[in-house]
């Protein structure tokens, strides 16, 4: 089998993401899981090592084509860990993760040989993956049900742009409490307008303000609740452009910043990892300055970056389906999600 055939599914996934056929991270996550599941069940692999190499190849391919897209690779990286775990269960051997303790106690005979063929591995892997799929599907609801723990009556919540997860979270809170939501419109795509419309439809007190008014409004805000594109390994965020200034304003007024995030958004990547230019994407400048603007187009340079880096000091809490965690705890979540050997491929 050639590599091209090997990766045709992944190729499709990448082009779907690029052409915006898959827009939300949730869609990407589900699709990726399906692809890997199909790969495990249909492909003729002989042992865990071969399968892992195949998935690693997919990850490398994805990172190369879409360096900013962390969801797909995170799902695959997590499945690598699932394979390692299932292998240990089926073969009844155990390894310890790399730690100071392991450094001291390791035995030379403890190294696992993933090339041992195991009959039951495929079945138990598929079982595990269907469980994982349910986890993905229920993640949004699980996060949303925590809303009442974090939002109190008559609080003023500030959010930005459009996020399905934040929308569900706020609606859930509004079922039990009366809340007041301020939505930043998020120029130049103005996705905040749609978000505000949806919240208003659910009978939530909603105010929409321009991005520039964030500092003026912050003094009366009780909580900032936002979504993010990726959570980086140091607890920082790769979030929508403009979030950094919101977080700074929140810090100035000591307003807590809560970030809602699915587990698959936690990425073992640091912002300063080599290829810094891969951090951001530039969107079409037409939204900032339309092509119909005339002669000024030749005279100015128009930039429309998509992402902001938000340092971990500015984030108060991450809320995932496992509950709330501080940014300093992200490393721990990562070690539960992924195997250390798969962090950097």
């Amino acid at each position: 089998m050639t590599h091209k055939e090997d990766l045709s599914d992944i190729n499709k996934l990448i082009s779907d993401i690029k052409q915006k056929k898959l827009i939300t991270s949730y869609e990407i996550a589900l699709k990726t899981e399906e692809i890997v599941e199909a790969l495990i069940s249909k492909r003729n692999w002989k042992h865990a090592d071969e399968l892992m190499d195949l998935i690693k190849l997919c990850i490398k391919f994805c990172t190369e084509c879409l360096p900013q897209e962390a969801t797909a690779t995170n799902i695959m990286r997590h499945i690598l860990k699932v394979i390692r775990e299932e292998f240990e269960v089926v073969s009844k051997k155990k390894t310890e993760i790399q730690s100071l303790h392991q450094l001291v106690t390791a035995n030379p005979n403890d190294v696992l040989d993933y090339t041992t063929p195991l009959k039951d591995l495929k079945m138990s892997l598929l079982d595990h993956l269907s469980e994982y799929k349910v986890e993905l599907e229920t993640s949004t609801d699980n996060i949303a049900t925590q809303a009442a723990e974090h939002i109190h009556t008559n609080e003023i919540i500030l959010t930005v742009g459009k996020s399905n997860l934040v929308e569900k979270f706020l609606k859930n809170a509004a079922k039990k409490r009366s809340i007041n939501v301020i939505v930043l419109e998020q120029a130049p795509l103005y996705q905040g307008h749609e978000m505000a419309a949806r919240l208003a439809k659910a009978n939530i007190q909603t105010t929409i303000i321009p991005d520039s008014a964030v500092f003026a409004m912050m003094s009366r805000v009780n909580k900032v609740i936002i979504g993010t594109h990726t959570v980086l390994a140091n607890g920082g965020l790769r979030a929508a452009s403009g979030v950094h200034s919101i977080a700074l304003a929140a810090k100035r007024y000591s307003v807590p910043v809560m970030v809602l995030s699915h587990m698959y958004k936690f990425s073992p990547i640091y912002s300063a990892s080599h290829k810094q230019e891969a951090f951001n994407v530039m969107a079409s400048p037409a939204n900032v300055l339309p092509y119909s603007s005339g002669p000024i187009l030749n005279k100015v340079q128009v930039l429309n970056p998509v992402f902001d880096y938000v340092p971990p000091e500015l984030v108060t809490l991450f809320i995932s389906h496992q509950g709330g965690n501080a940014p300093s705890y992200v490393y721990r979540l990562l070690s539960e999600l992924y195997h250390q050997d798969d962090y950097y491929l």
């Binding site: 730690s99 100071l100 303790h101 450094l103 001291v104 140091n234 490393y331 721990r332 962090y343």
Partner: peptide, 23 residues
């Protein structure tokens, strides 16, 4: 301290006590 680069990976300072407790 922003980050510690160790042979156990890149750690935040809070990860250190975790490692020591485990040992």
């Amino acid at each position: 301290i922003t980050l510690l680069f160790t042979d156990l990976g890149i750690l935040t300072p809070s990860a250190i006590s975790d490692e020591l407790i485990k040992l």
